[in-house]
Design a protein around this nucleic acid. Structure first.
Lengths: 331, 331
DNA sequence: ATGAATTGTCGAAACGCTTCGAGTATCGTC
DNA sequence: GACGATACTCGAAGCGTTTCGACAATTCAT
């Protein structure tokens, strides 16, 4: 940097101010400095900058590694977060130690200025740890108690409610909800629960007959679920499915039961967009806007890093996209 | 750190040497220092350390984001790499800018001490950039010209050859290879090509009739491929499939053609382990040992960071695991 | 017992940047 | 033409480590 200063005929601090823009620099001076920077191929040393400014310009990102994770969605979040962070001139450091020791160490050593935590569970043990850290944190997910941390999540309730409204507008009047498998239900109740609530409330408001069941991702389970539902609702004509793993099996079960989709039975899926699109019969769906959520999470984190005193909490909705699995009732 | 020094009654440098172990410190002194560190909850500042030592203790990791990526496998690599890096006391920074500007910037600023590049293509434009950087790089993949960079990759040739040998040992004598879809072939030829070579060489060495075809991940394509093969080999009894996306369709095609697996036709898949296991009829397979490859990649990178002058090149083999899709010929 | 080698500790000089207070022009205003 | 503002720029004091040379205290071989 002193080479740059010399080449431009200015002092070290002037170069620094050109770089950071924290004080006004006259156009000609700035010009000379920038020219010198380019000419010498100068690039500021991150360590020195972190030391002097007490900012690492780096965000920590805790990514989930449990086997029941949908890594496609996770990677969407990750990509969005990295891109958003770059817009603030921040880097992203991978944090994986599920016990939280990683984030404690990195926060204490000043390697990171804030933490993004994905895949937050209902009573996630990492939350109190994150809340007690010296750096701010943002949760992707909506736990019982966010302990003063900002949160973003997909608005599952809005999603299923939108799905119900769509079915209503198509003239469907006996609808069912197929939710997450048990494992997810126990691990992060409110996630699945909010989806179920959206469905139930929507159906009640619409005044139609409805029923809810769970379903494991197997053909047998799908057939059993379908049978249960048709027993309760003999004229079943609409389905909202919030269970991406079971989706192909449900489709197969319907085909084998001789149910025509979308004519006889219209189905709305709540699932990642790529899954909805990739199916042989693409699903009408409400999909998780992972990139938007990732971007907002970074925005929230940056706000707190830059001093925002209060945590925010946002639920991100998503529009329904009609594809091949829903159609109006034929009269 | 000076607080620690004072509390332990030693100098700053002594504390530093206790931390780094770069000079011998007597047991009692080390003990006092360590006690003081714990008591004060001291944790060294990463920025200052990076500045003074010219080591960021951080690895850059370029992860692929193209839509045809198998993120499950990618995440396995990532997890393995992060764990391996931690064993060296290194962190992992996410690099995503496909154009390479990210790695150039981070390398120049000293934020990272080395780079791990995943999903390397045959003539990857990022290779010359990486090779020209001031920090070492390791490729996961085997390009045409590695330009002095270390490489690790899965030994596709060994994999398909092992598959052939397995089929031979079961008494199979008319075997076929179903390879990657066209898109992958054009993008990173040698990857798919090596798999094909392993099959062909194995079959020739065994002196059996064999044939190779490509296959898109669709039911129609699978049925067509199967028909082609049976036309060429009327007594087809063994199949090696290196095309995870087409796997379920091939299975369906066989079932619909009335071919019994594994009795009439035995199939070995070369695919990620979770896919092989998750199938209704679990595939006998040779699977990519992603975590081992990730670990080795980090080992290689660390070797070069610590001064190893020559690049290495390693292909990692993997054992065949017999599951439900292969069985001996019945006499 | 004596010089050489070894062991354990210290002091001080970097490392390359940020930032604060202060200084010098330049400007508009009455 | 003097006065306070305003616009730029500079010097210097950190930021919290690492690391090198020096020094004192032991240990070892002779």
């Amino acid at each position: 940097m002193s080479d740059v200063a010399e080449a431009a005929g200015v002092s070290l601090s002037t170069v620094s101010y050109v770089l950071s823009g924290k004080r006004t620099i006259s156009a000609p001076t700035r010009d000379r400095v920038e020219r010198a920077i380019r000419k010498l191929g100068f690039s500021p040393n991150a360590g020195a900058r972190a030391l002097a400014s007490r900012r690492a310009q780096t965000l920590g990102l805790m990514v989930p590694f449990s086997p029941d994770t949908d890594f496609g969605v996770v990677m969407q979040f990750v990509g969005a977060a990295v891109t958003a962070a770059r817009a603030y001139d921040y880097n992203v450091l991978l944090l994986t130690h599920e016990d939280g020791s990683g984030m404690q160490r990195e926060a204490a050593s000043g390697s990171i200025d804030g933490i993004l935590m994905m895949d937050v569970e209902n009573d996630d043990p990492r939350i109190p740890i994150l809340a007690g850290l010296s750096v701010p944190g943002v949760l992707i997910g909506l736990p019982n108690d966010s302990q003063g941390l900002s949160c973003v999540d997909f608005d599952f309730m809005q999603a299923t409610r939108t799905a119900v409204n769509h079915l209503m507008s198509l003239g469907r009047r006996q609808i069912a909800f197929i939710g997450s498998p048990e494992q997810a239900l126990t691990r992060r109740v409110n996630y699945a629960e909010r989806a179920r609530r959206g469905f139930t409330d929507g159906a009640i408001d619409a005044g139609v007959r409805h029923v809810e069941v769970a379903c494991d991702p197997e053909l047998d389970a799908a057939e059993a679920a379908l049978a249960d539902i048709r027993h309760a609702l003999p004229h079943l004509d609409g389905l909202v499915v919030h269970n991406e793993a079971a989706l192909p099996f449900l489709h197969a079960a319907c085909v084998r039961a001789g149910i025509s989709i979308p004519k006889q039975l219209s189905i709305v899926a709540v699932c990642p967009e790529n899954i909805a699109q990739a199916a042989a019969q693409p699903w009408t769906s409400v999909s998780i806007p992972a990139d938007q959520i990732g971007r907002i999470a970074v925005d929230m984190l940056m706000a707190r890093i830059e001093g925002a005193p209060l945590p925010e909490q946002r639920l991100i909705g998503s529009p329904l996209v009609q594809r091949a699995t829903t159609a109006p009732v034929e009269s």
